[in-house]
Amino acid sequence: MDEDLRERLRTAAASHRPDRARMLARIERGMAEEPPSRPARGPRSPMPWLRVAGATAAVCGVLAAGAFAVTSAGREGPKGGQRVAAEPAPPRPASPSPGRGGALPAGSGPLWSDGSLNANSNSYWAQSEVTVKTTRQLSELTVELRIALNGGVNTTGSWRSLPEEDFVASAREEDGFLVYRWTLKPGRGVPAGTHTFAGQYNHAQGTRDTGRDDYTARGRATGGQTSVGGDFAQTH
């Protein structure tokens, strides 16, 4: 069955409104009619009520055929294949990623840390950063960054994202390292969140080996003291 005929059947079936009273009246009139006179030798015509019943059956048959065609058209599947319900793919599990400096982030209790080189570091100058994340407020915190004294290292300064007045900061050479140290002053606190401590320094031209550089962070929160540490696996 082509689409044009199917559409015409749908339209006819949807617009049809049978007049039941009118149909019943026609049937009653047909049953009351007398058969017309016929020549003696002619074939005898069917009884009027049979003609009415036949016409009624024909009308019902047309309507039923239209309804069947519309119903069949509505059940037709998509052309060219079956209807398939696609299931969403399961979420992919997240995998841990290494720290920006090449070493894996370290975590202990409420503390998490990461050591990295700032992206602006170059062949003459570098900035090593210690990122400390705490899930609780700290009443004590000491962060220590150690830069091996290789390749003509000398300090050019330091900074931290927490208020300067809350910390005692220093930079000095100790046992073959340039050591940056930030110590929280008594009575001050470190709020929960992510905080950065950075040491800046010059070095000889070229690539500097950071394999011996490292850091530690020691803090105290509700429940006791905790510490984390790590290194800087990249060279610059």
Rank of each mutant, 00 (worst) to 15 (best):
A14G: 06
W159C: 11
G101D: 03
A64L: 14
D231F: 03
G77W: 03
V132K: 05
D4E: 10
D214Y: 06
R8M: 14
R38W: 10
A89C: 02
V52G: 00
G151Q: 05
K133N: 07
A13R: 12
R26E: 01
T56E: 05
P39C: 08
S37C: 03
N154V: 05
S108Y: 06
V130K: 08
L184W: 02
A25H: 12
V143K: 11
A89L: 12
P90M: 06
R8N: 10
G107C: 10
G66N: 11
H195M: 05
G219P: 01
G61F: 10
S227D: 13
E174P: 01
K133S: 12
P96W: 04
S161D: 10
S108W: 03
P35V: 08
A53I: 00
T155P: 15
P191N: 06
A13G: 08
D213L: 00
G77E: 09
D166Y: 08
Q205L: 13
P96T: 03
R20E: 11
A204R: 14
W112Q: 12
D114K: 09
G224E: 01
A119N: 04
A57M: 09
G211T: 09
V190Y: 03
G61I: 06
A169N: 15
S123W: 08
L104I: 07
R51G: 07
E34A: 14
E174W: 04
A57E: 01
L63T: 10
S108R: 07
N154S: 11
N118A: 05
T131I: 06
P93H: 06
V52E: 08
S123T: 11
A94S: 14
P96I: 01
G187M: 06
A64R: 11
L138R: 04
Y215L: 08
E34D: 13
G176V: 03
T142F: 01
R22S: 15
A65K: 00
G219C: 04
T207M: 13
R181W: 00
T142N: 10
L111A: 09
S116T: 07
N202H: 07
G189R: 07
M47W: 15
W182M: 04
R6S: 14
Q225I: 15
R92K: 08
G211C: 04
T196K: 12
R6A: 13
D2T: 03
G151W: 03
L9I: 07
M23D: 05
S170I: 06
F68N: 00
L178V: 01
G42M: 14
R92C: 01
P163S: 11
D19P: 05
A40Q: 12
P96N: 03
P46Y: 03
R136Y: 01
R29Q: 02
T216Y: 02
S37W: 09
